[in-house]
């Protein structure tokens, strides 16, 4: 099979990979912050429940979570949802990544001195103004390296989607392998992942530098 054809086939799979990546990121970053608020809540029961959920999600393989979300509705609820592959992947990934992000957020938020909050309060700022105008920008700067680490992991984790036969990059390569009896397209996928993470690394570098204007 020709190199060009393989590349084009893989690009189709890569498109799905990028799509999963983008949707998961856009949804899980803000959801993670909500999870953080839950895990830091003064309402004890809420805090306990959220922390237990985070523990379960972080303590089990993402692969398993994808399977449970995909087969669960049919198995336990007798629900059959058409074309649920993509939806299942997004749901499982968003929940998983939100939990990981929430722990990074929490670490960042807890590292900010109490005096920064109090400085906001004595100026008559509300709690949310204090958080979003004073605390969060500082948190963001501190956690950016950890977040970018996690995001680059997400690039590669998208390949787990193939466990429920979702057509992403690796799945596309495996199909070519099966029909043509050649191995190299699978190895070739590595180049796509490398290329994608190279771009992300560059973006995060820029972002980190742009926040270096203060200490």
């Amino acid at each position: 099979m020709e190199f060009i054809n393989v590349t084009l086939d893989l690009l189709m799979g890569f498109g799905k990979t990028v799509l999963i990546f983008c949707i998961v990121l856009i949804l899980s970053l803000p959801l993670g912050l909500l999870v953080t608020f839950g895990s830091m809540s003064k309402i004890k029961i809420l805090k306990e429940i959220v922390r237990k959920i985070v523990w379960i999600i972080r303590g089990t393989p993402l692969l398993l979570q994808v399977i449970i979300v995909y087969y669960g509705p049919g198995l336990w609820l007798n629900l059959s949802i058409r074309n649920f592959r993509f939806g299942a992947v997004i749901i499982a990934f968003v929940i998983n990544y939100a939990c990981y992000f929430s722990e990074i957020y929490r670490g960042g938020i807890e590292s900010i001195a109490k005096g920064q909050y109090e400085a906001g309060y004595v100026l008559g700022l509300s709690k949310s103004e204090t958080f979003f105008k004073i605390i969060f920008p500082q948190v963001f700067k501190r956690i950016l390296p950890a977040i970018s680490n996690e995001i680059i992991t997400l690039v590669k984790d998208t390949s787990l989607a193939r466990v429920i036969a979702m057509e992403e990059l690796i799945q596309a390569a495996e199909e070519i392998m099966a029909t043509n009896g050649i191995l190299w397209p699978l190895l070739y996928t590595g180049v796509f992942y490398l290329f994608f993470s190279a771009i992300l690394t560059k973006i995060f570098e820029k972002l980190e530098n742009s926040l270096n204007y203060y200490k």
């Binding site: 001195a113 309060y121 004595v122 100026l123 008559g124 700022l125 105008k133 500082q138 203060y214």
Partner: peptide
């Protein structure tokens, strides 16, 4: 919040907002 504005406080360690300029600290 309203009552906080009646009473100013200069903290011992100032607690300036590191991400803002002097002007932005003051005008926030």
């Amino acid at each position: 919040q309203k009552r906080h504005k009646l009473i100013g406080l200069v903290f011992q360690s100032f607690n300036l907002f590191p991400q803002y300029t002097v002007l932005d600290n003051v005008t926030l």
